[in-house]
């Protein structure tokens, strides 16, 4: 249990080799054993736990905020209304327009789910962003993919595919070049790039923090080099703050791009 919930930063100073730092292999810093249901489709590990927390936390916040909502907002109600305004004004309206308000619940859920999942990167005793594993990013990217194709087909029928693959105004001869590119970029690369962007950013941040953690611990135990450990520790603190910003930024970017894709499917002329 401890191994499943703790950060497996390992310090293996090899005395025989004259001392040194051995960084843990990738599977040891991102792969977690199941708390139950090992090797089943419902295997519940640390990532699954963070995902559930990422659902429960916004639920609790919104329930408390909406329970005694008043015309003059105060406290938590104010904060949650600001979050709604933020998604509405920074994501929905610029990317989709007024028609996009029906997608507000999905985009709110997406933003909070990603953000809180990311924040576990810097929460003590966790230090693992849920999105540093490919499961959630690929699942969310598939949701975005199905959504924007579904919206396009719902509003434009099969003409959506025709307009997407054969953009109007392009000389017919160029369709030989444009159509495969559009097919790849719109229907294959988009979901993949969405997932990889989120996953890679969070994994890189996670590896960065692990690296500086290992380095700091090693240097503090290396006699005179402990002075350099202070610098390493400072970098660790700075990158922790940086990851706090990245956690928010990646959630915002993922939500915004999803909204942009939906907006593009809804209004292909734009």
């Amino acid at each position: 249990m401890l191994a499943a919930l703790s950060n497996p930063v390992i310090l293996l100073a090899s005395e025989e080799g004259g001392g040194g730092v051995e960084f843990p292999p990738i599977n040891l810093i991102v792969k977690w054993p199941a708390l139950f249901g090992e090797d089943t489709f419902y295997g519940f590990n640390k990532i699954a736990l963070i995902s559930m927390i990422a659902m429960i936390v916004p639920t609790i916040l919104f329930v408390i905020a909406g329970r005694n909502a008043s015309l003059v907002p105060r406290g938590l109600q104010n904060v949650m209304e600001v979050s709604i305004d933020f998604i509405e004004k920074q994501v929905v309206m610029p990317a989709i327009g007024k028609d996009g308000m029906r997608y507000l619940p999905m985009l709110m859920a997406m933003f909070f789910f990603i953000w809180i999942g990311n924040l576990f990167e810097i929460i003590p005793t966790s230090h693992m962003p849920a999105n540093a594993r490919m499961a959630n990013p690929i699942m969310l990217a598939l949701v975005a993919w199905v959504m924007f194709i579904g919206v396009g087909v719902k509003h434009h029928g099969l003409k959506y595919f025709k307009d997407a693959l054969f953009p109007p105004g392009v000389p017919k001869a160029l369709y030989l070049l444009v159509t495969p590119i559009e097919f790849l970029s719109t229907f294959l690369i988009r979901p993949f790039s969405l997932a990889v962007r989120l996953f890679a950013n969070m994994l890189a941040g996670h590896i960065l923090l692990v690296t500086f953690s290992v380095l700091t611990i090693t240097l503090f135990g290396a006699g005179i080099l402990a002075i350099a450990g202070v610098l390493s520790f400072g970098m660790l603190v700075a990158f922790t703050a940086f990851e706090f910003m990245v956690a928010f930024l990646q959630a915002f970017i993922f939500s915004l791009l999803t909204a942009v894709y939906i907006g593009g499917a809804l209004h292909p002329a734009h």
């Binding site: 419902y42 295997g43 995902s51 659902m55 919104f62 329930v63």
Partner: peptide, 28 residues
Amino acid sequence: DEIGEIFWGAIAFFGLWILMRYVLLPPL
């Protein structure tokens, strides 16, 4: 490589989406 992560992630996300749609957002 862990299907359980996708399974629980999907449950959590779709659960949050449904809650947002019908329970959490409407009052605000």
